[in-house]
Design a protein around this nucleic acid. Structure first.
Lengths: 337, 337
DNA sequence: ACGCGCTACTGTATCGGTACAGAACCGAAA
DNA sequence: TTTCGGTTCTGTACCGATACAGTAGCGCGT
């Protein structure tokens, strides 16, 4: 059987194609009675609804929003926080009649998602600021929102107030009486934290509190993956002669690595070592002892990102959102021995 | 400035629009020299590349594959296994020049992702077999692959050999000498496990091993979310007068709930209670004690699903894949006291 | 009887590409 | 010289919808 299009339905009912289109897309443009007849005929012919591709071309928008990541997803998702953000974004978009399309790097020559995938806007989540993908988005003139990244001129942004969060984390240790504090932060490929918003802000926050207390931290770092890297970096930190009595970490996963290292070295947490994580991921509650950490509301972040991209697509001025954090004190911190 | 299209470039270079199209999409159709000139002109005019929407309409395919889920993503992603699968799918698709679009339920009236989103095929991941979304996919005649679901006639499927995995888990407990075993499985909204492939197969596997040993299990169940439900269900199970000496669980998250309940009740794991999880999610290694569990290779599952959808889209016969599992013995199991 | 505003429907011109069949040209084999 | 195959480029006909302006008919106030 031939493909069913608006035209075939129009012919069947004896109206113009435009009227059939309106029956589906602008019900207020025709009488209810005629609309019923058209829909019935469409159903009878096995019509599914206006073809999304054709509609996208004619309307000039595709109804989907891209999410740009520099890393492969498998890596990104090792941390539950990323996937939770993701989920929140997808749900919020769906409620606004938009679909989420993932733009992850492709190994296939000639296929560049940020250039070749139809979308009306994009969320830029974890990207090098000078990535070619970003350049394609710019070139297409697509509305963008950058999340957990440095602001770019004229681009909407959604960020977490990581500096305050980290400051609270470090202050908590200071208040408990710690005077020797370690920092386990993220080591980026460039060796330069300044372009990574969370890494830079958290560092500034930790140092702000420690500086005020006259404490010079011992800094260690490790890459985002694999998970074992955190444990090894933590071992080194804890085997130093001037072993700190407390450690603040870039994430809960890093903190879990410190916990493992402490266990291996026979250190009691929090009696011998206090640990503070970041994010309040599920991990923070599952681990033993449970982790003191800085909570960020990832669901809210996702919704904020969606609100921002929708506003930007509507031509409204680019908002800059900064979301609050809160310290969650659990079992992994205590005064020093 | 007016929008740059193939035609503007053609006019600029003095060739036909078709030749410009070929310069981008079929480089072998024209001389290298002319192609260079065309690309240079395109670059100069600020052309980004063939418009994805127009290309989708003309070619008859959109270059993206949908992932259909019945639940909201936020819920689905509470389990790391789902997001890992997801990530693996996205990465594998990208390597094949395809994008991944998420089809999650929308609260917006008139927007039905499975009907309204452009795609060339769909992976059906967690869906009621009689969902309307599935019906739309069918009606569109879209190639499908169902994952972790019962096979449907003529639809490709990718499943894990959950029955064998569960049997191995239960057999492990039998071999350790347990004679009183609890099962904490998934309770579905319908109260009927038969339509949920993993739930049914795991139950059949557990029972197969236990039946052979003449053991009648004590069965408890709880919903997939929230996470606390597992702990509560586990408490009930462990407070029975005939408390089992071991429990097999539907997932590692469930097992973690049992672990928490045991802790609350002052039971030592594995001395007083053995626990076996399922999936070998990160949780299984993080928890204390570490969890004995059944490993499934989610990355392989994702790649298999992608291979299957690509084959199906190419018109090849629908494959039925069944992936192996393996028992991973860690600290949470031991002989009964 | 006339003009007015409304609702209900239609005609035409895109949207920006791709497929496919051919035309023009050129060197080599017969 | 003719024929033939191959490369390179062109013309035309879609792909399946939507936007927007326009027309027809109708009730209504005057």
């Amino acid at each position: 059987m031939a493909k069913v299009t608006l035209q075939s339905i129009a012919d069947r009912v004896g109206v113009s194609r435009m009227t059939v289109s309106n029956a589906f897309s602008r019900p207020d443009q025709l009488s209810a009675e005629l609309r019923e007849r058209i829909l019935a005929a469409a159903d009878e012919l096995g019509y599914v609804g206006p073809d999304p591709a054709a509609r996208a071309l004619a309307r000039g928008r595709s109804g989907s929003v891209g999410l740009l990541l520099n890393d492969r997803l498998r890596q990104t998702f090792e941390d539950a926080i990323a996937s939770e953000f993701f989920a929140s974004v997808a749900d919020a978009l769906a409620d606004n009649g938009l679909a989420l399309t993932l733009l992850t790097p492709s190994s296939r020559a000639g296929f560049v998602p940020s250039r070749d995938v139809a979308m009306d806007g994009a969320l830029v989540y974890i990207c090098e600021p000078d990535s070619t993908d970003l350049a394609w988005l710019d070139r297409r003139g697509l509305p963008q929102v950058s999340v957990d990244q440095n602001k770019r001129e004229g681009v909407a942004s959604v960020n977490v107030d990581d500096r305050s969060g980290a400051r609270a984390a470090a202050q908590h240790l200071v208040d408990l009486g710690h005077r020797s504090v370690g920092i386990l932060t993220l080591s980026t490929s460039e060796g330069d934290l300044s372009h990574n918003f969370p890494a830079r802000e958290r560092m500034l926050g930790w140092r702000a509190a420690l500086d005020a207390a006259g404490i010079e931290p011992i800094v260690a770092s490790c890459p985002y993956q694999p998970t074992t890297a955190a444990r090894e970096a933590a071992r080194e930190l804890l085997e130093r002669p001037d072993r700190p009595t407390a450690v603040v970490c870039f994430s809960d996963a890093f903190a879990a690595g410190v916990l493992q290292a402490a266990e291996e070295l026979g250190l009691e947490v929090p009696a011998d070592l206090s640990i503070v994580g970041y994010d309040d991921s599920p991990l923070a509650s599952y681990s033993r002892p449970t982790l003191t950490t800085v909570r960020q509301d990832v669901a809210v972040k996702g919704r904020a990102a969606v609100d921002a991209i929708i506003a930007t697509m509507a031509g409204e001025p680019a908002p800059d959102v900064l979301l609050p954090t809160s310290l969650v004190v659990r079992e992994s911190t205590a005064p020093p021995a």
